[in-house]
Design a protein around this nucleic acid. Structure first.
Length: 558
RNA sequence: UGGGGCGUAGCCAAGUGGUUAAGGCAACGGGUUUUGAUCCCGUCAUUCGUAGGUUCGACUCCUACCGCCCCAGCCA
């Protein structure tokens, strides 16, 4: 076990006791995505769990695509998933596996089941199968084809495989118990005819195994010891065990279920995420507002933040809803530690410093990170005209120092990393709006404590006008305006927050940001964390995504 | 309704017969601060879905009840 102080979760306890009792000499887990969509943060929990368990117990973790349904799957998703798992920081053992690698073996096992009279070819159609299945309270009825001889089923199964039977006309069913209180055990369909090309096996197969018939056997073939899935598969476990018990499999994996991740203000179901994309409610699977790994990445959330968040989650059998603030905490925590600092003025107004030589430019050296001097310094040019944020200035001299820790007409404020300045007057336009602030610097205050008698109200960020880099900022807010978009009376898309994306143009970034690179994270001081947008940004027009704002003091004057 | 699960603070949770009922997030006080950030310190369940019972002693065992989730795809 790792050196973690945390108490063991129920899966870790099981593994520990399996190892202690000699049930296994080592463990092997697997992450088994279906390539029918992109990975989201819910998958990240499963990835971190499976790979993490393998690491903690010195075992291995496989990556296996559950590609048993060619109708919804395709190679583009396979590529994206592989890329996302790598980006998250995990390495699977050996080759990537595919359920489709086992189609032949699975088919032989299906024949085996038929030959020992534990499966049969059924000719009931979709509707009939449903009726014969019974309901939650009424037992099912045996299919009229249930007692067909193994020999006849074998012939029919072969004809299904060859494509001689129409889609929907026949299925292969496990012969278990139509009277079982567990509906999954009422002769489940294990092979269906689909005359569809598969992204990997092409036209080779006309029949495809069901999830239940493929998953556990795939686990057994790969020597998976602990097959971890989500709670909704609990009712499938008896079936999982039945196949393992009735087939000559090379190992005996066991299935364990944990509660999947839910986060308020977010939607985490492939179907719903797909709808957002298909209906163009967002700009694709990698829209920075999407909880997909690609969206989060483009937004500026690091893989480490996602891993830290996932590690903070409980592995339990309750299906709870985690507060989004827990995710946000880990995002900020990581960014605070690693992001370079910089300044960017989003609502610029000119501040002209009249006692500073007009033609002069001074280069100020400011740390890239205030707590990590090892990261070095950045050069920030200062000159007589700078931009500050309109919200950082007021003519209202009645505001207390505690209420407004910024620039007030007639008072002093510290420019971050630079001089203390004083506002002396304002120029207004015909509408009475502040056009420019006039002021002066206090000499010899760069890096120095304020001289006696001068008490700056606070510290504000700024950018030299002559050296400013124009940029566009994309500010994101929650995609949904309600905590539980799936629980209202209206369709979840009706709760989309119209202000989830606000674009601010002509923002003024400090000169060093001209060299910002994709994949790098920045904190624009007093504002938040930002990163270059990997698709919209270009050298001539820098576009920054707001990953997340800084935490705000609730008393902060707005 | 048959079956399978789950109920501990605003949220996520640890706890498996004797502990002051961990920890994280949030919130709220206070300190530090050239980011209203960070950091630091402190507060935050006399009570564990409810009601009974067993026991010297129950979040832990028993009984009943209540609530929530999953299963009736030839999806996974």
């Amino acid at each position: 076990m790792s050196n973690r102080e945390e108490p063991l979760n129920f899966i870790e306890k099981t593994i520990q006791s399996d190892l202690d009792s000699g049930g296994f000499s080592s463990i092997r887990t697997r992450f088994p995505p279906e390539p029918n969509g992109y990975l989201h943060i819910g998958h990240a929990k499963s990835i971190c769990l499976n790979f993490g368990l393998a690491t903690s117990f010195s075992g291995e973790c496989n990556l296996r695509f559950d590609d048993t349904n060619p109708e919804k799957e395709d190679g583009e998703f396979v590529r994206a998933i592989i890329d996302d798992v790598k980006w998250l920081g995990f390495q699977w053992d050996g080759e990537i596996r595919y359920a489709s690698d086992y189609f032949l073996k699975l088919y032989e096992w299906a024949q085996h089941l038929v030959s020992v009279n534990k499966a049969y070819v059924c000719e009931l159609d979709l509707d009939e199968i449903r009726r014969y299945r019974g309901t939650l309270t009424e037992k099912g009825t045996n299919s009229p084809y249930r007692d067909r001889s193994p020999e006849e089923s074998l012939v029919l199964l072969e004809r299904m495989r060859k494509g001689e039977i129409d889609e929907g006309a026949m299925t292969l069913r496990a012969k278990i118990d139509m009277g079982s209180p567990n509906i999954n055990m009422r002769d489940p369909v294990i092979y269906r005819i689909k005359k569809l090309e598969h992204q990997r096996t092409g036209a080779e197969w006309k029949i495809y195994p069901s999830y239940d018939f493929a998953h556990g056997q795939g686990d057994a073939l790969e020597g998976i010891t602990h097959s971890i899935c989500t709670l909704e598969f609990q009712a499938n476990r008896p079936l999982y065990d039945w196949f393992i018990a009735n087939l000559p499999v090379p190992s005996k994996p066991r299935q364990y279920e944990f509660g999947r991740l839910n986060i308020n203000y977010l939607v985490l179901s492939k179907r719903k995420l797909k709808k957002l994309v298909d209906d163009k409610l967002v700009d694709g699977w990698d829209d920075p507002r999407m909880p997909t790994l690609r969206g989060l990445r483009r937004r500026g959330v690091s893989a480490r933040a996602i891993r830290d968040f996932c590690d903070s989650l409980a592995i339990a059998k309750t299906d709870g809803i985690v507060d989004i603030s827990q995710l946000e905490h880990f995002v900020r925590d990581d960014l605070n530690r690693h992001a370079y600092r910089g300044m960017c003025v989003m609502n610029p107004v000119r501040l002209s410093l009249h006692n500073y030589e007009a033609a002069k430019t001074e280069i100020l050296d400011i740390p890239r990170h205030p707590d990590r001097l090892d990261l070095g310094l950045r050069e920030v040019p200062f000159s007589s005209t700078i931009f500050i944020d309109r919200n950082d200035f007021t003519e209202d001299t009645s505001l207390s120092r505690k209420k407004f820790k910024r620039l007030v007409l007639g008072d002093y404020v510290r420019l971050r990393g630079g001089y203390i300045v004083k506002a002396t007057s304002v120029d207004k336009n015909a509408r009475g709006e502040v056009q420019q602030i006039n002021g002066e610097i206090v000499e010899k205050t760069v890096g120095q404590a304020p001289p006696a008698g001068i008490k700056p109200r606070g510290v504000i960020h700024w950018v030299s006008e002559a050296h400013a880099v124009n940029c566009t900022i994309r500010q994101y807010d929650r995609l949904f305006s309600t905590a539980f978009p799936e629980e209202g009376n209206k369709p979840f898309v009706d709760y989309i927050n119209p202000k989830s994306l606000v674009i601010k143009r002509n923002c003024k970034a400090e000169a060093s940001l001209k060299n910002a690179s994709i994949g790098e994270h920045y904190q624009f001081e007093r504002e938040g964390y930002y990163c270059l947008d990997s698709v919209l940004s270009c050298p001539s027009d820098l576009v920054f995504n707001c990953t997340i704002g800084l935490r705000e003091n609730p008393d902060k004057y707005k």
